[in-house]
Simulated assay, not measured.
Amino acid sequence: MAFPANRIARAGSIALCVASLLGACAAQPARTDAVDLHAPLQIQSQGSFFVGGTARPATDLSGTSEGPEVTRQGTVTTGQMYVQYQVPVKANHLPVVMIHGGALSGQGYDTTPDGRMGWSEYFLRQQRPVYVVDQVGRARSGYDGSKINAVRAGHLPANALPPVLNIGHEMAWTWFRIGPTFGVPFADTQFPVDAVDAFYKMWIPDWNAALPAQNPTYANLAALSDKVGGAVLIGHSESFMFPERAALVDPAHIKGIISLESGYACNTTFTEGQRATLARIPILIMFADHQRDAPEPFASTWTKSMAQCRAFADDIRAAGGDVTFIHLPEMGIHGNTHMFMLDRNNLQIADLLIHWINEHVERR
């Protein structure tokens, strides 16, 4: 796949609005070293593995009495999380863990719909080990099919099946703020509209409703952070607050938290003890553009969410935490959608994240 010739990372300055403990903003330069995006990748190691999982006895493993004889009973493992990793030759930064959003998979961090470099490769080129996960119950992590088989075998009623989230083209366009109405982009949109059909192919049926209230992904993320000796966790959309939830399971090896856009997750009440735990870890919260320009009910949902997340940031600051809140239009970056990592300026946004990690996590 050919890539545009103009993709050399800028090494200039980007105005970064950093919220202080008093809520003020100070402009700071965001600079990363120039990166040759065409140079051969120098990778020390790469591969994949699973984290977590619980073994339990199960029946009706096949879900059918037809066809060849297969085991009807046995032991299955569920709740495991797939992890794909790449470690650069000269790794001199903390590992970064990238967690995808609802109805998506880790592929969203690999390559943009129009064939540009994704965040996983860009962070790797910045000498950072990168771990990209598939949430439990999704994609290569698989899902627990026991209820499906039990319903098919008549052991459970049909309404015992969990709902499956499927996001259609029309909803993705407006909900994720590519444009105000389906097929009509915002004039300044950063999304690669010409490649939207490739974007639609990224969507995966979402089985999260089948998971327990304490999503196994939380503990798996904490375990992964422990396995790699400390990491910065990046959550997006549905996984917006997965890094925080992982830290409440075990904060020992979670060195930084980046939470990118959510339509609901900041509407959460934490205890004083939980706030104190989160206050020990630097946190970055980021929102993109056009919240108020989206059609209803999305406009109200996005603006309410952003207000709740500002309040959450204030709560953690009041507990002594280092929390940075960025709303991109307020710092002069316009047109970004909910899908930061796919937008045409995705590497500019990545530079902001890298600068924050350098200043608020690694400098500590």
Rank of each mutant, 00 (worst) to 15 (best):
H338P: 01
Q107H: 07
T324V: 05
S62N: 09
S120R: 14
V196I: 15
N346Y: 05
A294H: 02
P180Q: 08
I326M: 02
G335F: 02
W119C: 06
F298V: 05
G118H: 10
C309W: 00
A15Y: 05
W119D: 01
L21Y: 07
H355L: 05
Q291D: 04
F325E: 00
P68A: 07
I178F: 09
G179W: 02
H169L: 10
L37P: 04
A27M: 12
D197R: 15
T54Q: 14
G321T: 02
P88S: 09
A27P: 04
A210W: 03
V361S: 08
V97Y: 13
M171H: 04
F340E: 02
V151W: 00
S48L: 04
Q348H: 09
N208R: 11
H338G: 02
L342T: 05
P282N: 04
T268Y: 11
L284M: 13
L61E: 12
G12M: 11
I234V: 15
Q73C: 04
E330P: 03
Q190W: 01
G23V: 06
I316F: 00
G142F: 11
P185A: 12
F3C: 07
L104G: 02
T324M: 01
R56Q: 14
Q42E: 15
I99W: 02
A27E: 12
G67Q: 09
H338F: 06
G101N: 08
S305Q: 10
T271E: 09
L221C: 05
C17W: 10
D36Y: 11
I178H: 01
T77V: 15
L22W: 07
A91R: 07
H253M: 03
A195H: 04
L124C: 06
P216A: 12
V184M: 09
T111A: 06
H38L: 13
N358E: 13
P329F: 06
G230K: 01
V193M: 09
K147W: 03
H155T: 09
N346D: 06
V136K: 03
Y122W: 15
P282L: 06
S239R: 08
D194N: 12
R310I: 14
T54E: 15
A11D: 14
H327P: 02
E359K: 15
E261C: 12
